[in-house]
Nucleic acid binder design. Structure first.
Lengths: 244, 244
DNA sequence: CTAAGTAAGTTGCACAGTACAACTAAGTAG
DNA sequence: CTACTTAGTTGTACTGTGCAACTTACTTAG
């Protein structure tokens, strides 16, 4: 039986015995590793009746109406199961739902995207999880379901936001230098940025603070910074001017 | 029975006989009427077992797995049912899902937001639908479910985007002047904008074109424009500089 | 016919923040 | 001590907004 057109709004919408779509949550987890943007994927099981056996997929799964108080709690749970940690940044990305995206039936997934420092993703990675480099907004293996499309949307959202926010700060380790941060911006945007304009922008944003320590190397030492506590992401009033 | 932790990923996730959340779609439909931002609401029925009887709510309802190919098609359908038209702009806003938001059980809604010109919303409005003014991001009546929260998020998203996009163009009638458009920007942002900077921004964006007609009034006539066909929204590289 | 009023549209200068490029500073390695 | 490298600064050009005064084109009152 199909729901009434005006479900949530007709005299008999109290009857709820019509077919419901499957509800899942998937999380696109980004980290910087080896000077490159990486995403965490999970290999699908090979069991009978399993869709996309052995394909790689975004970590996620069904909403558990007994366990999950709300969608975000569900996303946090999935993230924790695969990485052993909670991420410093979690944002809703959007939802994808259609008749055909899952062979098991009409399904809708609520996608989230998370940013974490490399160091966080090393602790307790699930055995079926693995980091994959993202190049040109794509991943090498073809992903299960429509996860390739979701990943592309996540990369695009990340790139757009990096243009005018402080999001890359959540990809940094506890202590970092300004050139470190700039490199992460450049990795995500895949283009070089102006050093002086970058420094002006970041330092006037009141988002990081210097600590009493320098990063020493074979050349001039660099000031180390840390994120100010409890800092929301900062929104700048301009984008970096794209080249072209 | 609860889904496995690793649903979409365990040997027996082929079994799909665990409880599923309710899946709905709701649409926040904006239009400018009487120099003010308005949103379309629908009054809930009074039948037995109906949650929030006679409260006002966002137009929406259950996903119909037989009728709706995907979520967006479902949103378009809801929109059409209430307004009789399709809107020139429809964007996904986010999803809200939790155990408590609907007394009938764990439910998740996929929220969209739509922009349309006033003229479009006059044709075939459903009898239970009505336009309400939005002031200070709020609506007078307390809305059903968590729709107040969703509306607040939609207004916030709209305000943010108006700061650096051409979205208000979708709120305009077929022919409009630049001062008309500026007024709509000012209505949404709730603050005055600079005339000359506004004109420079809009005219250099290649989004509207002048037509061979002027708007005549008790003073200097104004050039009429129309949206260029098939125009995607334009993103500017700066926001208008907020005051203070 | 003229003057006053009003809104459309233009112009010029100040200001903020990025782009570009050259410079200084502080370390290591030979 | 010199060469090299990266951190960090400085100065000038450019772009687009903020602000304010100005011109233009119409209506209405007299």
């Amino acid at each position: 039986m199909a729901p009434k057109d005006q479900a949530q709004g007709t005299e008999n919408s109290g009857q709820l015995d019509f077919p419901r779509p499957l509800a899942t949550v998937d999380v696109v987890i980004f980290a910087i590793r080896n000077e490159g943007l990486h995403v965490l994927l999970v290999q699908r099981p090979a069991g009978a009746g399993e869709p996309f056996p052995l394909s790689w997929a975004l970590p996620g799964g069904f909403v558990d109406v007994a366990k999950d108080r709300d969608l975000e709690a569900c996303a946090v749970r999935k993230l924790k199961e695969k990485t052993g940690v909670t991420s410093p940044y979690l944002e809703q990305l959007g939802s994808w739902g259609s008749a055909g995206r899952d062979p098991r039936g009409w399904s809708a997934t609520h996608a989230y995207f998370a940013l974490m420092p490399e160091e966080a993703g090393r602790t307790a990675l699930a055995p079926d999880a693995q980091w994959f480099p993202v190049s040109a907004g794509r991943i090498k293996p073809k992903l299960a379901f429509d996860h390739g499309e979701i990943l592309t949307a996540a990369v695009e959202r990340l790139r757009n936001k990096v243009e005018y926010t402080s999001l890359p700060a959540y990809l940094m380790p506890a202590e970092f230098t300004l050139p470190d941060l700039q490199r992460v911006y450049e990795i995500v945007l895949d283009r070089p940025l102006e050093k002086s304009a970058f420094r002006t922008r970041i330092l006037s944003a009141d988002m990081i603070e210097p600590i009493a320590k320098m990063r020493r190397g074979p050349n001039r030492p660099a000031q180390l910074y840390r994120l100010k506590k409890g800092k929301e992401p900062v929104y700048f009033v301009r984008t970096f001017n794209p080249p072209e």
